[in-house]
Amino acid sequence: MRSAATTSSLLCTSHITGLVLAGGRGTRMGGVDKGLQLLHGKPLVQHVLERLAPQVGTLAINANRSQLEYARFGYPVWHDLEEGFPGPLAGLHSGLVHCTTDFLASTPCDSPLIPYDMVARLATALAEAKADAAVALTDGAHGRQRHPVCSLLRRSTQASLQAFLAAGERKMDHWFATLACVEVEFPDERAFCNINTGLELQRLEEEQ
């Protein structure tokens, strides 16, 4: 059984790198860079960075375009190691390759309401289950939903992910199914909302 000292060490933010995934095409938003779209006068990615920063020891952004704009937030910008916008798993792979901490916490750039305790709760569950990964789960109006992009991974999963991508696989749920993974339920479904379209962005602006 994992000792209290080991669990406490895991929860130390200095052992965790935070990664904001902003490497997509933004297809459903007309091809614009979603992370740079404004919500209440601030880019979506800035909302995410401000919520994630207190939860981790260091931060980075995964982006495949607009690198100069993302670099202005003051964090390293890591692009996918594969060409052609292969999806969020490629962003996670880049994060696992580049990070120097034992753990990588990820969240998408279009989820501006992520919980302030997300990483701590994922870390606690991962340690208690001796798992390789912990993912967020919600059970609300849209039923039970896993949010694998909001996850905490051991850096040691890098080799598994690299082999998965090399085999031509791209689906996040399929890769997480190969890991010792624990689900962590969060009470607020809305905290994990994704802004995929201009209409969704407008609605969130009006609601808050």
Results as ranks from 00 to 15, higher is better:
Phe85Val: 09
Val149Glu: 06
Thr13Ser: 07
Ala191Cys: 10
Ala53Leu: 09
Ala131Lys: 00
Leu204Gln: 08
Val135Ile: 15
Ser14Leu: 08
Phe73His: 11
Glu205Cys: 10
Leu122Val: 07
Ser106Pro: 12
Phe186His: 10
Thr100Ala: 11
Arg155Asn: 10
Val20Phe: 01
Ala53Gly: 02
Gly24Tyr: 01
Leu126Val: 04
Gly41Lys: 01
Arg65Tyr: 00
Ser94Gly: 15
Leu199Glu: 15
Leu165Pro: 06
Pro187Asn: 09
His174Tyr: 05
Leu59Gln: 07
Tyr116Arg: 07
Cys12Trp: 08
Val48Glu: 00
Thr100Pro: 10
Met172Cys: 11
Ala127Gly: 13
Phe176Val: 13
Cys99Phe: 02
Leu81Arg: 09
Ala177Trp: 01
Arg154Cys: 02
Thr27Pro: 06
Gly31Ala: 04
Thr27Ala: 15
Arg51His: 00
Asn194Glu: 15
Ser106Cys: 13
Leu11Gly: 13
Ser66Glu: 14
Leu161Pro: 14
Ile195Tyr: 12
Phe85Gln: 05
Ala90Val: 06
Thr138His: 02
Arg146Cys: 03
Glu128Met: 10
Ser151His: 01
Leu153Tyr: 06
Leu96Val: 05
His147Lys: 04
Pro148Ala: 05
Val184Ala: 04
Asp188Cys: 08
Asp110His: 05
Leu92Lys: 02
Pro54Ile: 00
Glu185Lys: 02
Leu68Ala: 15
Asp132Lys: 04
Pro115Gln: 08
Met172His: 06
Leu137Arg: 15
Lys130Thr: 15
Gly57Glu: 13
Val97Ile: 11
Gln46Leu: 11
Gln162Ser: 15
Arg25Lys: 09
Pro43Thr: 03
Leu19Val: 02
Glu206Trp: 02
Phe186Gly: 09
Lys171Leu: 14
Leu19Pro: 00
Gly31Asp: 10
Thr107Ala: 01
Leu179His: 03
Asp117Val: 04
Trp175Ala: 08
Ala163Val: 13
Val97Arg: 03
Ala105Val: 13
Glu169Asn: 14
Gly26Arg: 00
Phe192Gly: 00
Ala141Ser: 14
Glu185Asn: 06
Leu96His: 04
Glu205Ala: 15
Leu89Cys: 12
Val48Lys: 01
Leu68Cys: 07
Glu205Arg: 03
Ala141Gln: 14
Pro148Phe: 01
Leu126Met: 12
Glu185Met: 12
Tyr70Ala: 05
Val184Leu: 06
Arg155Lys: 12
Ile16Gln: 00
Asp139Trp: 05
Leu204Met: 13
Asn196Phe: 04
Ala177Gly: 05
Gly24Phe: 07
Met29Ile: 11
Leu49Ser: 02
His93Phe: 14
Pro88Ala: 12
Glu206Leu: 13
Leu52Phe: 05
Gly26Phe: 09
Ala163Lys: 08
Val32Cys: 11
Phe73Asp: 04
Ala133Arg: 00
Thr157Glu: 10
Glu128Leu: 07
Thr13Val: 14
Ala166Ile: 06
Arg170His: 11
Cys12Lys: 12
Gln55Phe: 06
Pro88Trp: 06
Gly23Leu: 05
Pro108Glu: 12
Gly30Glu: 02
Glu128Pro: 09
Ala90His: 10
Cys150Glu: 06
Glu183Asn: 08
Tyr75Pro: 00
Ile61Arg: 02
Glu183Met: 08
Asn194Ala: 15
Leu81Ser: 14
Tyr70Gln: 11
Gln37Met: 13
Leu39Arg: 03
Ala136Phe: 09
Glu206Gly: 07
Met1Trp: 07
Glu82Gly: 07
Arg2Ala: 06
Leu113Gln: 07
Ile195Pro: 12
